[in-house]
């Protein structure tokens, strides 16, 4: 039996004076990896942020069920506790707490259980290795002074440590060089090893998807999903771009 993790119906949302999502339908099953592609300004990041609960966006219509519960009734931290995670485009610098200490408290918040310090530390070290980052990053203040690429890698480290049920990756590959994209992709693959781990990858670059298992690809244009297909759609878009969908939208 196919279990649905997230079911979104006719979602309309946007900023105070501007509708961005104009009726989104999306279903993500347990263990599935979905990719959202689309031109700039189509509403890709907005969709991710609305699922995570960014208060900047107002939901004006539609429903969303996460694990059978009303998503829009949950606060941001409740969503996190129930297994939703988002890798940010622009992670915030927080002085005064090290990456490791932050991850430990976040992990305790999410699981409600005490973290055993030493195994947790070993796991961070291992994952930093996979991400090709120096172990010293664990002791540095959360994102403080990290380069753009280091911040993105640190987000994937958080993904690997917090082990959410549904991970939204909001343009994690933007601003990364070819090698860094491969490294980050390796971290995501680690996360995918868990059969129940679901992903919603927002990107306009196919490189990050190369070594990942992908179940469905959606194209968003002007706030609507205009196409949904299997992974073969990635190649079509790499070849032809979004032009034909944009014409449709007009």
């Amino acid at each position: 039996m196919e279990e649905k993790l997230l079911v979104i119906k006719n979602l309309r949302s946007g900023l105070e004076d501007k509708e961005i999502l104009k009726g989104i339908d999306l279903e993500i099953g347990k263990g599935e990896t979905h990719v959202i592609m689309g031109p700039n300004g189509a509403g890709k990041s907005t969709l991710g942020n609305v699922i995570m609960g960014n208060p900047v966006y107002t939901v004006t219509a539609g429903t969303a069920e996460y694990c059978g519960e009303d998503l829009f009734e949950m606060s941001v931290s409740e969503r996190a506790k129930k297994g939703i995670f988002m890798s940010f485009q622009n992670p915030i610098e927080v002085p005064g707490i090290s990456l490791e200490n932050f991850l430990r408290s976040a992990s305790e918040e999410v699981t409600g259980e005490r973290v055993r310090i030493w195994p947790f530390h070993k796991e961070i070290e291992k994952n930093l290795g996979i991400l090709d980052m120096d172990g010293a990053y664990a002791d540095r203040d959360l994102n403080v002074g990290f380069s753009g690429g280091e911040k993105k890698k640190a987000e994937i480290l958080q993904l690997m440590m917090l082990k959410p049920k549904l991970a939204i990756l909001d343009e994690t590959d933007s601003g990364l060089d070819v090698d860094a994209v491969k490294t980050v992709s390796g971290g995501i693959r680690e996360y995918q090893k868990d059969a129940d781990a679901s992903l919603l990858i927002i990107t306009h670059n196919a490189a990050i998807l190369e070594s990942l298992r992908v179940d469905k690809v959606h194209v968003i244009v002007d706030g609507r999903i205009v196409e949904t297909k299997g992974p073969e759609l990635i190649d079509e878009i790499v070849k032809d771009g979004f032009a034909k969908y944009e014409e449709q939208g007009e």
């Binding site: 996190a80 995670f85 915030i92 927080v94 932050f102 918040e109």
Partner: peptide, 20 residues
């Protein structure tokens, strides 16, 4: 929002920022 998306309550998120 960033800190809450990692499971911290609004109160704890703000306290963490102020301590920093």
């Amino acid at each position: 929002f960033y800190l809450m998306s990692r499971g911290l309550s609004e109160e704890n998120a703000k306290a963490l920022i102020v301590s920093g």
